[in-house]
Simulated scan of single mutants.
Amino acid sequence: METAKKVVAQAAKAKFELTPPAYAVWFAYYRGEHPKLSAEVDRILASGVAFSKEIHERLYNQFLAPREERAVMDQVQKQTQALLAGVMEDLGAAHKDAHQFGGKLAGYVAEIKQAAGLEDLRRIMRHMLHDTAEMMAASKQLEAKLAEASRQTRELRQRLQVTAEAALRDALTGLHNREAFDKKIAELHQEFVRDRQYYSAIFVDIDFFKRFNDTYGHAVGDLVLQSVGAILKAGVKGSDFPARYGGEEFVVLLPATVLENAKIVAEQLRVKIAVKRPQDPESGEVFERVTASFGVAQVRPGDTPAAVLARADKALYLAKESGRNTVKTELDLPA
C-alpha cells in the first residue's frame, strides 16, 4: 500500500499520466526490484527530462515486459513438468497392472489344464472375466488420463504461443512493436544479401502530434495513434509489415517491393490517413483531421538495415520541411 501511495504521489509531483506502463515502472522503482531499471530512472531524474508517456513505455518494454514473459514461461514450464510427472506415474502404474494381469492369465491357463470338471472351469472363467473387466476399467482410466494430459498440453502450447505473439505486439495499436520490426528487417536483409530480394521501408510520422496531444489530452492522442495504426494495418497486404517504431512514428516494411511501388503504397496510406477523422468510440465525438508525413527508401547493394532506415528517415524529415502531409523518397534527397 505504501508503495502504491509513493507512485501516485510521484505522478502528481512530476505531472505525468499514470498509465499502466508508468505505474509498473514506478512501482518496481520504489520496490527496488530491478536495479537496472532504478539506475535508468535515476539517470533520467538527474537529467531533468520530463517523464513522458513514450519514456514510460520504453522503460516498461526494456526492463519489465521481458520479466513478465519469463514469469509466464516459468509457470508453464512448472505446469508441464508436473503434467509429465503425472503421465509417467500413470504409465508406470499401467505397466505394473499389465504385468500382473499377464501373470494372472498365465496362472489361469495352468488351472484350466488341471481343471477337474465343469464347475472348476466355470470358477476359473468367472475369475478371468472379473480380472479382465478390472484391467479394461484401468485401461479406460489411463486412456482418459492421457486424453486429459493431451488437452492440458494443447492449452499450455496455446498459452505459450499467445505470450510469444503478445511480446512482439504494441499494446496500444496492436501493430508489431520495435523488437518485432528489428527481427523482420534483419530477415529481409538476409534474403536480400542471399537472393537479391529487394525490400523498401516507409517511415510514417503523425504531423503536429504534440500539439494535438496538448490540445485534446493523452486519451485522444492514444485514439489518434490507434486510428493511424488501424489504417496502416488495413492499408497493406500479404507479407507487408506495419509496426509502431516509437511515439507517434510508425514504419512499414515492404518485402519484394522496389522504391517506385513503395512510393505508391505510401501515397495511398497518406490519403487514407488524411481523409479519416478520429472518432471517440464511446462519446461519438469527431476530432480534427490528422495528417502524416512519409519517407521512403529501398535497399541497395552494400547496404545495412541501418543505412536503409537512415535514408528513409532523411526523406521523412524532408517531407516535414516541405510542408508535411506529403511523401518523399530517397531520390528527393539532395545529392
Rank of each mutant, 00 (worst) to 15 (best):
E2Q: 11
V8L: 13
V8F: 12
A9N: 15
Q10E: 15
A12L: 14
E17I: 13
E17P: 11
A22G: 08
A24W: 04
V25E: 03
Y30G: 10
G32V: 08
L37I: 09
A39I: 01
L45S: 03
G48N: 06
G48R: 07
Y60P: 02
Q62Y: 07
Q62R: 12
E69G: 14
M73C: 07
V76H: 04
L84E: 10
G86K: 03
V87Q: 02
E89Q: 09
G92P: 00
A93V: 09
D97L: 08
A98T: 06
H99V: 13
Q114S: 10
G117F: 08
R126C: 13
H127E: 15
H130D: 14
D131H: 13
D131M: 08
A137D: 13
E148W: 09
T153E: 13
L156N: 12
Q158F: 15
T163K: 10
L168K: 12
A171Q: 08
G174K: 02
H176F: 09
D182T: 03
D182G: 05
E187F: 08
Q190T: 07
D195Y: 15
Y198D: 04
Y198F: 11
S200V: 03
D207A: 02
F209Y: 04
F212W: 02
D214N: 03
Y216K: 00
Y216L: 02
G217E: 00
H218M: 04
L223R: 05
G229T: 02
K237L: 11
G238A: 10
P242C: 05
G247L: 09
V251P: 09
V251M: 06
V251H: 07
L253N: 03
E260R: 10
V265G: 00
V271N: 05
I273C: 05
A274C: 10
A274G: 07
K276R: 15
R277T: 10
F287L: 03
V290S: 01
S293I: 00
G295L: 10
V296N: 01
P301T: 06
D303W: 01
A307H: 02
V308L: 09
V308E: 00
D313V: 07
A315F: 11
K328L: 05
D332C: 10
L333W: 05
P334L: 11
